[in-house]
């Protein structure tokens, strides 16, 4: 019996992957041993992120870690991956939405229809601005060229932000060469981990989403060929990766705000920031009107957030 070999590509570059995926894959390879080995490739390494989904569909790549938005998956749920504005406040919101509020079923149906297995969704960090110049009011957002997720960018452009999408690995240099004024792609943990804190000076404490949502996917045929125990092992390792991020980011965000020395914190006052939150309400409606599936997901978000609001502290404050 020969070793099953998978190629997997993540949308993260090596510095970030060292935390968010390397340990899980190493674990998988160690346990699966001669039965199966996964070789991991980083952002754009084998195929560019824009071609990632198709590459997985065709079997050029066997498995992928990404949010739906970055790889522009051809489904109705694409916009909800990455940072959907104000859909979640905490990183635990994401698994609850998927496991208890019915998103798993919707995702499964959507991806099965395009020949891809949706394995599980997990959550990452909140979405903050890291910029060269300080942001203290909405006015300061105007004209800023910022690397961000497509849907977040669409939302932010109404405030004069100019969203730019570049290969992940090029971001640090693009800030230095003047292609970008900043980044709205992560929380502060990532800013420090991947080197963005070295090229930007300010961190805005307001965020447009409390937690990123992204998933593990596999080519449907490759997935079905796996014996059940290896499927289970793969799921377990994905869960391990989700779990690692829960504490790594949660602890990291607080620690670096308090003890980090590379970025100065700024804030937009709550009353002013409320404009952004209100704009999100309109944005949700806009997306819901794009289709049935979108409407269903937005309804789930509404229901969930209403429940959290009613539950009160510590779920939601005010």
């Amino acid at each position: 019996q020969s070793t099953i070999k998978w190629r997997m590509q993540t949308y993260a570059g090596p510095a970030l992957a060292a935390h968010v995926i390397d340990p899980a894959i190493e674990m998988f390879n160690k346990i699966a041993g001669d039965r199966m080995q996964i070789e991991l490739f980083y952002a754009d390494q084998l195929v560019p992120t824009g071609e990632l989904f198709r590459a997985m569909q065709q079997g050029t790549i066997d498995a992928v870690q990404s949010d739906d938005d970055s790889m522009a998956s051809p489904t109705d749920v694409t916009v909800f991956g990455g940072y959907f504005p104000f859909a979640s406040r905490y990183s635990l919101d994401v698994p609850v939405l998927f496991n208890q509020y019915g998103l798993n079923e919707i995702w499964d149906e959507q991806y099965s229809a395009v020949g891809v297995k949706h394995i599980s969704a997990g959550s990452w960090d909140p979405c903050h601005f890291a910029t060269k110049d300080p942001i203290r009011s909405l006015e300061d957002l105007k004209g800023k060229r910022v690397f961000t997720f497509p849907t977040a960018g669409r939302f932010l452009s109404q405030f004069g932000v100019v969203p730019v999408t570049l290969p992940w690995e090029d971001i640090e240099v693009a800030v230095q060469t003047g292609e970008l004024d900043g980044i709205a792609w992560s929380g502060i943990t990532e800013d420090y981990t991947v080197g963005w804190a070295d090229v930007t000076n300010y961190f805005l404490t307001n965020n447009i989403s409390g937690a990123w949502a992204g998933s593990f996917f596999a080519n449907m045929d490759r997935w079905n060929e796996l014996p059940e125990d290896l499927q289970t092992l793969f799921r377990v390792c994905c869960d391990q990766s989700h779990y690692y991020r829960q504490w790594w980011y949660w602890g990291g965000e607080a620690n670096l705000r308090v003890n980090g020395t590379k970025m100065e914190l700024t804030s937009i006052p709550d009353e002013e920031w409320a404009q952004v939150e209100n704009a999100a309400v309109a944005f949700w409606d806009e997306i819901a009107s794009e289709g049935e599936v979108q409407a269903k997901v937005v309804d789930i978000f509404r229901k969930y957030n209403a429940d959290m609001q009613k539950a009160g502290r510590p779920y939601r404050y005010g």
Partner: peptide, 22 residues
């Protein structure tokens, strides 16, 4: 040598090149 889907890689390099803004 690559296996399934290898034939797509030479072209996907063109998409990679397109995104190399410098």
């Amino acid at each position: 040598l690559y296996g399934t889907g290898g034939q797509d890689i030479p072209f996907s390099a063109a998409m990679k090149l397109m995104k190399w803004y410098p």
